[in-house]
Computed example of a mutant assay.
Amino acid sequence: MRVRRPWGVALLLLALAAAPAAADTSPSPSGDSSGDSSGDSSGGTETAAPTEAGTSFRSAAEIGAGVRATAQGSTGDYLYWSFPADATQRATVRASVRLPEEHAGQTWRIDVYDGLRRRQACQYGAQSRTAAAGAASVELACVLRTVRGWAEPWADDPLPGTYYIRLSAAGLPVADAGRAISAEVRVETADAGGAAAVDGALSEPLVPGIALRAPSDTTDDATDDTTDDTTDEGGSSEDAAPPVLAGTAPEDGWSSGRWTDRWLWTGAGGLLAALAGVWGHTLTRGRGRPGA
């Protein structure tokens, strides 16, 4: 009976180790594609879907995962949106452009940039598509690589932080310039789990305005010389704060470099190896004893 006891202990410990690991590898709620146009707060801090797009990186409209953003514009404009992406997440950007009733052939494309404004390549998807003359709309998609928690300075790997979407028309005929169009953009994220985790983490995510944050003591010293002038003109020094240009962040915060489920699987593997060694030792010891 003593030979069978390690098997019961092994099954119990394996069940305890595998249960949280299976829960961690489930898709992120922010990747749910069933959200409506009113907005889904599971992937970001914003609950309302924006109805306008920015015209540059600095004025990009912020959207969260699962939120369908809409915008009105003109052919020839650059339309910008931004969204957060954390480590081990794979983002899919989808765009739909409703074209004028009468138009010539047009080529539309979506480009995605990271927090350093480096253009990120799409793994697959129709990133660029040509709409035939008179087509009612054009659909675009871009599936990005999985975001890494850390990378070498020379690498162009996607890192945690803000990502920018740029929607534009390439090779636009002169006759179609300035025509009214409407666009819809949606970002979906899926969690790749511990399989995509790396041994490293950024000190701060690549979010606009992060370099403008300073310790409170240095900020107070730097503003001492200017507070008198601002208060005399009716300004309030108490309301002054370092500007932060990005307000969208994952609901659970930036989790780069935190605990991942791969440690649970590593521990479970080590435990099974130890139990296998105990079981093998028990078998060989039993065979070596005469009359056992």
Rank of each mutant, 00 (worst) to 15 (best):
G44Q: 02
L206A: 08
D191E: 10
E238K: 13
S56Q: 03
A276V: 08
T47S: 15
P50M: 05
A211G: 02
V207D: 00
G253A: 02
T284K: 11
D225G: 14
W263T: 06
D229H: 08
E251S: 15
A292I: 04
A201R: 15
P208Y: 07
A201S: 12
Y80S: 00
L264P: 06
A49N: 00
G35Y: 08
A136M: 12
A69S: 06
L116Y: 15
T51E: 03
L264N: 04
L11V: 12
E102T: 10
V278E: 08
R68N: 11
I63M: 01
P100L: 12
L271E: 00
P208D: 09
R4K: 15
S28M: 08
L159K: 13
W265F: 09
A95P: 06
A87F: 11
L140F: 11
A17L: 05
D221E: 07
A170H: 13
L283E: 11
V198K: 05
R145S: 13
W7F: 12
D176P: 01
D191P: 00
T88N: 07
G269P: 14
L206N: 05
G39T: 07
V143Y: 04
V198L: 01
G193P: 09
G286C: 07
L264M: 07
T51C: 03
S82V: 03
E101V: 13
S28C: 04
V185N: 05
A175W: 00
L272E: 13
R4F: 15
G76V: 07
D40Y: 14
A131T: 02
A19N: 12
R117C: 06
T130S: 02
Q106H: 15
T266G: 08
A292T: 01
P100E: 12
P100H: 12
P6N: 01
S203L: 02
D111S: 13
A23P: 07
A48G: 07
W108G: 03
R68Y: 13
D224H: 14
P50W: 03
R129Q: 14
I110E: 00
P27F: 05
L202E: 01
G269S: 09
R90H: 02
G269R: 02
P6F: 11
E139K: 14
L271Q: 10
A104C: 12
V3N: 06
A155W: 06
G171R: 07
G277D: 01
L13M: 14
A49F: 00
